[in-house]
């Protein structure tokens, strides 16, 4: 119910409504494609076709940013609702993650468009795509619990999260491929849980790029650790969250 209201709020505000969830990442991909592929020419990062390479990673990235940034405000927005509703407070976190997920699913046609434009069909490994979606969903839920409950106690966290998210854009293989990083640094880069997930998104098109099993394991276990930390923190701070409501 809450998810529906969120989406409605989102889509009725602007005239183009739903189209914006297509246009926003599309525009972003186009700009980045222009800069990194057309303007920078031969010093190209990533793998070709670059437009597709970019959009496959940009969409999940968009989802990640939206969800994490929204997490900082969850309980501040839900104040009035938490005061009288006996539903478990996790629901508000789940709602935020779910509504951003729906937006992400809605924006998937951008990838289809990129496939059509570049005529590059994915291989059998595309089967990992849904797995990546599921993993990212769990990751976002864990981070959501962590960030939302902490930001009740530390309101300044919202600003910090913004900066961290911005930094992660450049630290994650979105503009570039994990293979652009020197071999020695690859396993350090893999501490970022997004590395593994983005690798799984891309594996359908570029199996040769695929992150080594080791770095995949590292990055997924960091993700799992975040998930557990999120649940733990949330339960520690639960009564405080309710008090602030």
């Amino acid at each position: 119910m809450l998810v529906l209201r969120d989406l409605q709020n989102q889509y009725t505000k602007f005239r183009l409504g739903y189209l914006w969830s297509l246009l926003e990442p599309l525009g972003m991909s186009l700009v980045l494609w222009l800069v990194f592929s057309v303007l920078l020419g031969d010093r190209a990062l990533g793998l070709s076709p670059y437009l597709l390479f970019l959009s496959v990673a940009i969409l999940p990235w968009w989802w990640f940013t939206k969800s994490v940034n929204a997490s900082t405000k969850i309980f501040r927005r839900a104040r009035g609702e938490l005061a009288f509703s006996a539903l478990p407070p996790q629901i508000w976190v789940m709602r935020t993650v779910l509504s951003t997920s729906v937006e992400f699913i809605f924006s998937l046609p951008v990838i289809v468009l990129a496939i059509v434009l570049t005529r590059d069909l994915p291989g059998i490994y595309i089967l990992f795509f849904p797995v990546a979606i599921l993993l990212q969903f769990l990751l976002l839920y864990g981070i959501g619990l962590l960030v939302s409950s902490l930001s009740v106690v530390i309101p300044d966290l919202a600003r910090v999260v913004k900066i961290v998210v911005r930094a992660m854009f450049y630290l994650s293989p979105i503009l570039y491929s994990i293979t652009n990083i020197p071999q020695s640094l690859q396993s350090i880069a893999a501490i970022n849980p997004l590395v593994g997930i983005l690798g799984l998104y891309r594996i359908g098109w570029w199996p040769e790029e695929h992150t080594t099993v080791v770095s995949l394991v590292i990055s997924l276990s960091v993700g799992a650790a975040l998930f557990i930390a999120g649940i733990y923190t949330f339960h520690r701070l639960k009564s405080r969250i309710l008090k602030e409501a």
């Binding site: 709020n9 609702e81 005061a83 009288f84």
Partner: peptide, 13 residues
Amino acid sequence: PMIAIGRAMGPTF
């Protein structure tokens, strides 16, 4: 609990 339930309502709904 019948407290401030109206706060949860959205004006655009």
